[in-house]
Design a protein around this nucleic acid. Structure first.
Lengths: 337, 337
DNA sequence: CTGAAAGCGCTTACAG
DNA sequence: CTGAAAGCGCTTACAG
């Protein structure tokens, strides 16, 4: 390579008449540099359009400005649920703002994940990770903790008090949903939830709290479990029908759409025969008919906050863990009376 | 750093009793190495779990095993249309298989894109890019071509014969859709398409070909233009209604859902009063009622092929350009008679 | 077939 | 406040 023409730090140093070290210091915002030299360097940088080689920086400075988004859920679930695209959009938005490159770690089979992550950890070329879609039996989070990898969780964790996370108030959301149904006069309120996802468990807890607060008995036969897929929502609804609930809180919009489909198949009218409330707030295109009343969570904001938290950790690794819980909001539509 | 304990090539060389060069050659699959040394090195690698530092490799070998997915469309469009998540899933699947790290370049405003891409090009740390969502007036593709960046296009291009691309047969799809309507007895067939997207233009061309092949007049007043959004599909449908078409080929499922919504608002029955056919094949969750007849494109496969093509280019940059056109398929549902 | 050495483009103690 | 030099962990002509 003709090092005379390649635009590297050496060339900039020559053009500015300083040492490579000075160029490096200027570009890294070192405080104590003679203004004259500083300006000379910056001018040359501007004129040449020089950008430091990020790979070389990684090798020396241990900083890559790359973050990874890890979604431990299997990819086909991931992208059949609009929650993840929305979250990804928020994360990407914040990453762009802070000039971070975002890499995507999706997994397409059970064991696809652990090996990849193990290798990524060994390589150590990411500044940190945003981790989401956390199942209770997930293998990846323990791996990250054990290897002291920097990460921010989207959602809370069962593992450790010491984790940075950005959660939404699922428990309050569960309460709000259930209370809304109670206030509207529904009395036999069932729930479709999921027992291996912390968010769904929190929503379930909110449901129980609301029942209790209103002196209503908790009836286990009114509980069905799904896996966040539309089909499992339909199945859950089918299982609940014999108990004749007059309303169902479905702990995810995806499952709620399945539940609505099942009701249509059984000629059960919504909301005349049964009221339905979901959780997530799907975009209109995905809305069923009737449009779904739901608890809306600030997915986009959650993603952005996760990245900003990541940045804080990178800049100050000793920072005590940041744990945020964002509020949710009731959105009323035609699926409740 | 205690270089005695860090697991690097030097340490492996010591343990195996060979030089660093030999270790490197073994790991790079150089052909002419004495089997004995080869085995010794591999054993040590296995026992220690050593993995080469990818950053150092990038710096020397000019190979990062990282590819970028560039989606020039604005992100909020991107993720309101399930096409992109599906494509991303295919790309990620192939990337995992080939041990490539996938980075995601999304843009959240008009000018977000060009600067980011310019900087990414300058850095040169990606082996190549998969580019999609190509609008006719897109700024990014010319930038890549001009800088001789390696990329594979998802969809075809207007720019250059020399580009690698994986397209689907949009023109045949347009023909199939229109011919299906003709065969079912529809006679006054309108289209909702998009004039700044090559795929939609190709679908439109197929529509015209089918009309011509069946001796039917092409009537410009039966053409409406949208931008792939649901609302624009609804608007397009509203514009077409006065012309009283008996069927509409909507060149994207997203717009077709909008069209169906508009028909419902106007109390127009589907398919009794009007037949609708779309293009894309959305997952069931997003399906309207009535379920949409559509031309299904192999989105996932398109993504995987794009990555595999990328690999071929990386390994052999002189390779003549690979241009693939994948077949599409008719899926009949309740929105046509 | 194999090793010693230079080099990739940066950063950062170290010395002044 | 600034420069010369070592070093990050690899790869690859070069010489043998």
């Amino acid at each position: 390579m003709n090092t005379k023409n390649t635009l590297n730090i050496k060339r900039i140093a020559e053009l500015a008449g300083v040492s490579k070290a000075t160029v490096s210091r200027v570009l890294n915002d070192y405080p104590h540099i003679r203004p004259e030299l500083r300006d000379r360097v910056l001018r040359v940088v501007r004129e040449t359009g020089y950008e430091r080689n990020p790979v070389a920086r990684m090798l020396t400075a241990n900083r890559s400005n790359m973050i990874g988004l890890i979604i431990p859920t299997e990819a086909r679930y991931v992208f059949s649920d609009p929650y993840f695209p929305k979250l990804t959009e928020g994360i990407s938005r914040a990453a762009n703002q802070h000039k971070l490159t975002l890499s995507l770690f999706l997994f397409h089979s059970k064991n696809d994940g652990v090996d990849t992550i193990r290798s990524v950890i060994a390589n150590g070329m990411f500044d940190g990770f945003v981790v989401t879609g956390h199942r209770i039996d997930d293998q990846i989070l323990p791996l990250l903790i054990e290897n002291r990898v920097r990460f921010v969780l989207v959602g809370r964790s069962v593992y450790n008090q010491d984790i940075h996370y950005i959660d939404v108030d699922n428990q309050a959301g569960g309460r709000m949903a259930t209370e809304y149904l109670i206030e509207r006069g529904y009395r036999h309120i069932a729930i479709i939830t999921c027992d291996h996802n912390i968010a769904a468990i929190d929503r379930f807890e909110g449901y129980r709290q609301a029942l209790q607060a209103h002196g209503m008995a908790y009836d286990p036969s009114l509980v069905a479990y799904g896996d966040f897929s539309m089909d499992s929502g339909a199945q859950g609804m089918a299982n609940l029908l014999p108990q004749q609930p007059d309303a169902v809180f479905v702990a995810s919009d995806m499952m709620a759409l399945g539940a609505l489909r099942m009701l249509r198949e059984h000629q059960v009218r919504v909301p005349e025969d049964i009221g339905i409330i979901g959780f997530d707030d799907f975009p209109p295109a995905i809305q069923a008919d009737p449009q779904l009343t739901t608890i809306k969570q600030p997915t986009n904001q959650q993603g952005m906050l996760a990245v900003e938290t990541m940045l804080q950790i990178i800049e100050n690794p000793e920072r005590p863990s940041r744990q945020v819980t964002l509020p949710v909001e009731l959105v009323v539509r035609a699926s409740t009376r």
